[in-house]
Design a protein around this nucleic acid. Sequence first.
DNA 1: CGACCCCTTGATTAGCCTCAACAACCGTGG
DNA 2: CCACGGTTGTTGAGGCTAATCAAGGGGTCG
Lengths: 243, 243
Amino acid sequence: MGSCLAERLAHYVSLTAGEEQALGQLEQQERSFRRGTTIRTENDTARDLFVVQKGWLHSYMLLGNGSRQIMRLHFPGDIVGLSNLAFGHSTDSITAVTDVTLCPFDKDRLAVLFEQHPRLAALMFALTVAERVSLADRLASIGRTSARARVASLICELVARLRITAGAAIDKFHVPLTQEEIGDATGLTAVHVNRMMRGLVDDGLIGRNGNVITLLDEARLTAEVNFVDRYAEIDTSWLPKAR
Amino acid sequence: MGSCLAERLAHYVSLTAGEEQALGQLEQQERSFRRGTTIRTENDTARDLFVVQKGWLHSYMLLGNGSRQIMRLHFPGDIVGLSNLAFGHSTDSITAVTDVTLCPFDKDRLAVLFEQHPRLAALMFALTVAERVSLADRLASIGRTSARARVASLICELVARLRITAGAAIDKFHVPLTQEEIGDATGLTAVHVNRMMRGLVDDGLIGRNGNVITLLDEARLTAEVNFVDRYAEIDTSWLPKAR
DNA sequence: CGACCCCTTGATTAGCCTCAACAACCGTGG
DNA sequence: CCACGGTTGTTGAGGCTAATCAAGGGGTCG
């Protein structure tokens, strides 16, 4: 079995033997954590990053007023903990939403990768830019749209991302998030999230059964949100040659 | 005169002659634009990025409901247009807030840089991560804090960033933004921005004279906001060796 | 079986938006 | 040099969205 990171990057380019081997070097280990475990807290000075192998996580910041802003949900294939790279420390906390398996690797290893495999470096650069754009989408959603649209938008984002890992156009999803977590991701209270979701159900846009959400009218749902799928494609045409 | 990009990166590491020359290659040209010019619009498929040499710009997204979310202000030394790298197109629009001078360079040149100068590639990667963290701060501010705190936070961010380019701890700034622009950056209406700024003035936190803002009580201002200066330092300890 | 967490719903409050009117300022053209 | 239109800033009044407060129900885990 290759490395988690290799699997991730292979989605975008076909890796050479040399690249695959280099990526394999990054991961001698994998670690599992139980649901609810906080893997990293703000200002941690750990030197390793993780590739998610199995499960969901979220990263968030805690504010002085006691509230929490969830920055991003992390799914299998995602790289988490990048802020430890750019700063000496973590800028957010990371908690396991479900039981998870992670592949840690030290940031010094990344330097080796940049030296020996420029194509992979450039690809990781592009992926980081893409993630920043995704954050920008969330910013626009929270800054400039109604509560209902924010919740709908989050659902659309989850659908788009889950379909990538699922590999099919499924329309029924298990979403292991509490309404409080959805609120912390969308800048709303749990109570108001509840009302908005009920609204979406009442209007026939989605169905809900426990934690399982069904898309009933995807066209109208995406129409309510100016949703753009950032996960479908990355431009790899400019990447340098593989080594 | 070296390249704009070289100047920017030299803030973090001392460049070798080879690196400096490689960066110089990126910029044969510089272009000027008048205040108000839109340099790039959403979905543009241009292939070049820019380094800001002089002036302010902002990047923003327009939403279906007619509103605008300003994602980021760009100052001299910043790189803009990165989304054209990761996707085939631009994900945001970029407009000149003041008269500006930019240094454009093609994204293919960046590939060469990744191949020949891994240290610079890694540094640019770290800077992109830092910018993402800065966006995350804004997300927390807009998602989870009051209107007053959002405006105060924007002022703190401007101060921190302007001091870097100014190179001194000045406490008086010309801010060429309209209140509508401040609103679009903070997710508020211009009217409410006006009231919040008046509140900050009335409470003696800031002074205002036309577009010039004076910090009167910086300690209390930063205390109201859980502000972290992300621009002070980048961890360069992990970077590969220079070539 | 009890404690706790999560969901749900109602009533009330508060923060921010909308609408509106006017003043100050700027660049432009006569 | 002044007149003018357009943009920006300022302030007030009222309305709506989402927060807060509160109470009860269901599920799960110890």
